[in-house]
Design a protein around this nucleic acid. Sequence first.
DNA 1: CCATGTGTACTATCTGTGTTAGTACACATA
DNA 2: TATGTGTACTAACACAGATAGTACACATGG
Lengths: 123, 123
Amino acid sequence: MIWIDYTDATPIYEQIVTKYKNLIVRGVLAPNEKMPSVRSLAMELSINPNTIQKAYAELERQGFVYTVKGRGNFVADNSGLKEMKEKEIIQKLETVVVEAEEAGVDLLLLSRYLNNRMDAGGK
Amino acid sequence: MIWIDYTDATPIYEQIVTKYKNLIVRGVLAPNEKMPSVRSLAMELSINPNTIQKAYAELERQGFVYTVKGRGNFVADNSGLKEMKEKEIIQKLETVVVEAEEAGVDLLLLSRYLNNRMDAGGK
DNA sequence: CCATGTGTACTATCTGTGTTAGTACACATA
DNA sequence: TATGTGTACTAACACAGATAGTACACATGG
């Protein structure tokens, strides 16, 4: 279902968090669907169970999954998750905008890039 | 001239690199103008000279300053620096765009935010 | 009841990065 | 010659990420 990019400096547990958030927000994983167990996912990805545990704890903290002791982790049923993810992305966009402003780069440059990018993606 | 934000998780030397790149690109620092010495800037910011050295080495590596041994660091004279900074920012925007796509978030959301942001900034 | 699978909580260890501290040396200039 | 400059080291510390191993509590199906 997911994979790890070892050429990416992003910590493994963060990659797992991001990828599962995307799967959940896109609806690939249905609400209340069971997540892979900590041990099985660790086996599948060939990484340490503690790292999976850390990722799951973060997913739960952010409200994307809920945990039932002795049974496993399950996808949360929350229509607000997509909106949360959208706000997260807008926040990152804002960070880029601020950096552009501080460098004296015209935001029109970003706007043009984004528009071209949308045309290219929707072809 | 610059300051360090200790509430920011970004490493000190990276903050210094980013801030001086902005000052140079904006023309606040003129080409061939002398940069603060490693030791004096370390004193001014109350941080270790080695950290400044690391920042200056990075600035030189990226072509924003040049070094004359025994004399100091000086702002590079290169009209392409602004374009380099622009490409760097576009690259960060692209990263956000990819994350949006992976989460199934409509790029129109980003475009609308950016346009509103430009109107607000240009008031 | 019991074996198994589950989450959870520890401790210990290793690695890499960021930072500080201290020393030393070569070069440029007044 | 004294001072200011960049540069190159080594050592030490703190922290984050990751691994390894162990242990315990809970849920479920036989």
